[in-house]
Amino acid sequence: MKLKYAYLLIAGLIILSSCKKDDDPIGEVVPPRLLSEVVIEDDAEIIEFLKTHFYNKDEFETPPEGFDFRIRFDTIAGDNSGKQSLFASSNLITDVISVTSSDFGRDDGEVIDVKLYTLVVRQGVEAGKPTIGDFSILRYEGSLIDGTLFDASSNQPVRFNLSSVVRGFGNGMKNLQTGMGPVENADGTVSYEGYGVGAIFIPSGLGYFNNSPNTLIPAYSPIIFKVDAFAYEPDSDFDGDGIPSILEDLNNNGNLLDDNTDDESESFGVYLANFNDTDDDNDGILTIDEIELDAEGNFVGFKDTDGDGTPDHLDNDL
């Protein structure tokens, strides 16, 4: 799984990115460009693709025998000149997400709105949708805009938390309802029915920006992930501290990575965002011992022992 976000770069599963516009060697970290410049270029490239390509809509509407419910893109030209573009599709969702240049090692203070596009080809039958604080069970395929495949899961479902992937992937998944299952097959595999099918078009500012983990992805490249959304685990708790991880998005910006309430008191070189930290205020008392749980150990609420408005698990001066 090559979808890990920037802070997991050490683990070899981080943010990749690319720039067909630079001559820097691919597979290497290059000095970050201005976020505001890259955002404009990326959006133009994605929109150009969306306006000049279509997907196999007819097969999804009237599935032929043996259809695998996989998305296939093609160019609007020749015999396909009458096809509806992806950009004109009523199933294309645009999300505007705020990104800061400091996320990419720049100190120029840029805060830029970035557009993320999600094509919902088939909505799943289950009403719920995963959040960036949930474990998700899915199948995916990642490619560059030009179709170069750089990553894909096996045919079987994979499970990972949606804040360990590139930011745009997790934010795009919130648009997809999931399916029913798993069903155990005679050959030992599992399958799902009525699952969501979509494609997420991710600008590099929500993807790998200037850090590429392999030679397939240049810096500053928009990327596409085709996704089958099988299932998810609501109210997931990634670090086991008793708090559902989605509640650790303290600034409600759809990014768990920038919520770290004890960064100044942690050891040099250590970065533990709250959703990965079992002691969120670094006071030596585990978070799970500073919150309210029911008899079964389920999260009930936050404590504020001294009444200062800061929950105990974030208050290291009790």
Results as ranks from 00 to 15, higher is better:
E65R: 08
F299P: 14
A231L: 05
K21E: 13
D228T: 06
L16C: 09
I288H: 01
K174E: 12
G254I: 03
D95E: 14
E296I: 00
I285W: 06
F73D: 03
F69S: 07
D235R: 12
Y140M: 08
D315T: 10
Y140A: 04
V300Y: 06
A11G: 15
L34S: 11
N214Q: 14
E248C: 07
V96Y: 06
L35P: 03
I291F: 02
D259R: 06
S89F: 01
K21N: 09
L314N: 08
L318W: 10
K303F: 05
A231H: 07
S236G: 15
G307Y: 02
E110M: 06
S265G: 12
S90Q: 11
H313N: 10
I76T: 06
L92F: 14
N298V: 12
N91P: 02
T189C: 06
L13T: 10
F230K: 11
S265N: 15
E266I: 09
G128W: 11
A6Y: 00
I15S: 14
L149H: 02
V197H: 01
G242Q: 09
L92I: 12
Y271G: 00
R72I: 04
I217V: 15
P182A: 15
E41H: 07
Q84M: 02
L144T: 00
L86S: 03
D289C: 01
Y195C: 03
T278M: 08
